[in-house]
């Protein structure tokens, strides 16, 4: 079964008004089960829009979106995915721990279980010591990590991430990249990952999808094979070749 099928989707914002924006035209994208796909492209090319379409937060103007074999709206109701978006979007009145617990709470997970899961996820993103803090007391990068922990907490079969590591320093970023790959590999999670970093896209993905703006569309899809996804992988010639290939695809 395929995790995501985007079939001939077009999205026009404010249709029929003077400020009409054709955000996406004729987009086709398939994400296989357990596959890691990155979306890369210039600002405003519709990456976030595509992700939001998959999440059924907005509806396509035409075309269909299928998630886990079901229409996107049904998949959303059945909680088939977890999201971590560009803005952390934490609830300022909840502690870090209770922010991470939120999706579990809405699924009716027991209190003890929620707590254990939240602790585990915070450990993962290196914020175990901040469980009792409020978001206002954290830096932007730390908030972003809480949002990632929150998305991972429910162990969704599909992860939708929009520049989740954008606000992080290089060291934390690389560590979280490895952690994310580990989690995805271990749990067989399929991932759609939006990034502005070519290196990040190549390192993480089985496939890098290149988009271009005005109108937003997919211009290339580049398969990535690396000997390994670790420190050695970042040194491999194949890694640099792919980076060059993606860069050229972005130029053209």
């Amino acid at each position: 079964m395929t995790a995501v099928v985007v079939d001939n989707v077009t999205k026009v914002f404010n249709r029929g008004r003077s400020d009409e924006v054709p955000a996406l035209t004729d987009v086709n994208l398939t994400v296989g089960d357990g596959e890691f796909v990155s979306l890369i492209g210039p600002s405003g090319c519709g990456k976030s829009t595509l992700l939001r379409l998959i999440a059924d937060l907005i509806e396509p103007t035409s075309g269909t979106v299928t998630v886990a074999g079901r229409p996107a709206s049904q998949a959303r109701r059945e909680q088939e995915y977890g999201i971590a978006f560009q803005q952390a979007g934490l609830f300022e009145w909840r502690t870090v721990r209770r922010n991470v617990e939120l999706p579990l709470e809405l699924r009716g997970v027991s209190k003890a279980e929620r707590r254990a899961k939240a602790e585990e996820m915070l450990e993962l993103v290196g914020l175990a010591d901040f469980a009792g803090h409020y978001p206002g007391q954290l830096s932007g990068g730390m908030q972003q990590r809480v949002a990632i922990a929150r998305a991972l907490a429910v162990q969704p079969p599909l992860l939708l991430m929009d520049e989740p590591f954008g606000a992080l320093d290089e060291m934390t970023r690389e560590r979280l990249q490895s952690e994310l790959l580990g989690i995805c590999a271990k749990t067989g999670t399929s991932t759609v990952f939006v990034t502005h970093s070519i290196a990040e896209a190549v390192f993480l993905s089985g496939r890098v999808v290149v988009m271009s703006a005005r109108p937003g569309r997919i211009t290339a899809s580049i398969e990535v094979e690396l000997p390994s996804r670790d420190e050695a992988g970042r040194q491999a010639p194949a890694y640099f070749e792919k980076i060059t290939e993606v860069r050229q695809a972005l130029r053209s």
Partner: peptide, 25 residues
């Protein structure tokens, strides 16, 4: 913010739960 509302939507929370967990606090 729209982000918060979308987050609740992604959790398949209806109007009531969005009210209790997000809008009211």
């Amino acid at each position: 913010s729209a982000g918060g509302v979308e987050l609740m939507r992604s959790y398949a929370a209806g109007w009531w739960r969005t009210l209790v967990k997000l809008r009211f606090p």
